[in-house]
């Protein structure tokens, strides 16, 4: 059922059946280290280059998901997947061996939210029984594409974030499970004219604030409706801005807001500055941390909001600002 301007509450429920997540060494050494399915020490993941390494990440996550899930492989109707690389090469090379129809998505670091939204719509609309939603990122391939070669020296400012190396995948299904996707709120592209690509938190915070406000209005609720409101990769700078922006609108999220980018690394000891970022940041935190806490009934209703900064090296060189976007997924623990 369509709600308000940009939200849907599903009439036919969609559930999260199983998850798989795989990360690199640095993520494994972080505060969530013990909760990931697989931690791989080799940053190349046994491949020849960084791009192939990220494809390998997707492959390993998919394999892990297939081994954990009860859903037979031939009953997976679609994969909704994406990454950060140009023309989605990590996804196309990572998923080609599975012989399953794929929708390739680009939502920058918000891709996991986009994939889960579209997957849930497809199931709820009766077009599929089981779909996979997944997203990956790799520190080295992202750094190479968006910034500098890794051997080149540069000083990262305090506002910068560290791209998470990893891949998270979830199996969405129509069959009843403990955690459901109750609805979604799809984000607009929001641009407040910030040009600093080393401060992505500031670029994305307005989009996250816009999405949260829209969700509250569409559903006619407020911040107390959720046990947790969890953004993707705003980092400490973006979180502060988000709380300020929402306070202006009359909402106080200081007690129930969390950010995956802040949770995944120990900023002080791992020198990640403002926090983690990348598609995998929200994807693996969802699998390893958020859904576990929901299954344990620590949280019963969560608004999960992967956030994305929509820039390319071309738009940056041409002097454009960095617009942000966000995709909200309403997760609910079944009684």
């Amino acid at each position: 059922m369509v709600k308000g301007k940009q939200s849907i509450l599903f009439d036919k429920a969609v559930y999260i059946e199983e998850t798989a997540c795989i990360v690199g060494q640095k993520e494994g050494e972080g505060p969530l280290g013990g909760s990931f399915d697989i931690v791989v020490e080799d940053p190349m993941f046994g491949s020849k280059n960084w791009e192939e390494a990220e494809s390998r990440l997707q492959e390993m996550a998919m394999d892990k998901l297939l081994s954990k899930t009860q859903v037979p492989r031939e009953q997976i109707r679609y994969i909704f997947a994406g990454d950060l690389l140009g023309q989605l090469i990590a996804t196309s090379f990572g998923l080609k061996k599975y012989d399953i129809p794929v929708f390739g998505l680009y939502g920058a670091c918000s891709t996991m939210g986009e994939a889960m939204s579209l997957g849930a719509i497809t199931i709820s609309g009766g077009c599929a029984d089981n779909v996979v939603a997944m997203a990956s990122s790799h520190f080295a391939s992202a750094e190479k594409q968006f910034r500098f070669p890794l051997e080149y020296g540069n000083q990262r400012p305090e506002t910068s974030t560290w791209t998470v190396t990893g891949c998270g995948a979830v199996m969405l299904t129509a069959q009843s499970q403990p955690v459901s996707i109750k609805g979604i709120t799809t984000g607009k592209i929001v641009d407040f004219g910030v040009k600093d690509s080393m401060n992505m938190g500031a670029c994305m915070a307005p989009a996250a604030a816009d999405l949260i406000t829209a969700n509250f209005k569409d559903l006619e609720v407020d911040e107390k409706y959720y046990d947790r409101i969890i953004t993707g990769d705003l980092g400490v700078v973006g979180r502060k801005i988000l709380l300020d922006l929402l306070r202006e609108k009359g909402y106080d999220l200081s007690s129930n807001h969390m950010d995956c980018g802040i949770e995944i690394f120990d900023a002080k000891n791992q020198d990640t500055k403002a926090g983690g970022s990348g598609c995998a940041c929200s994807a693996v935190t969802l699998c390893a941390y958020i859904l576990k806490n929901m299954k344990n009934r620590k949280w019963n209703r969560v608004l999960f909001i992967p956030t994305g900064a929509l820039l390319s090296t071309v738009s940056y060189n041409e002097g454009k600002s960095v617009p942000g976007t966000a995709h909200g997924v309403i997760l609910e623990r079944q009684a």
Binding site: G24, K26, P43, M44, N49, W50, F139, A140, E143, P149, L150, E151, D271
Partner: peptide, 9 residues
């Protein structure tokens, strides 16, 4: 001689 390496910090 050298191959690309991951950054630790």
């Amino acid at each position: 001689i050298f191959n690309p390496k991951m950054k630790k910090k």
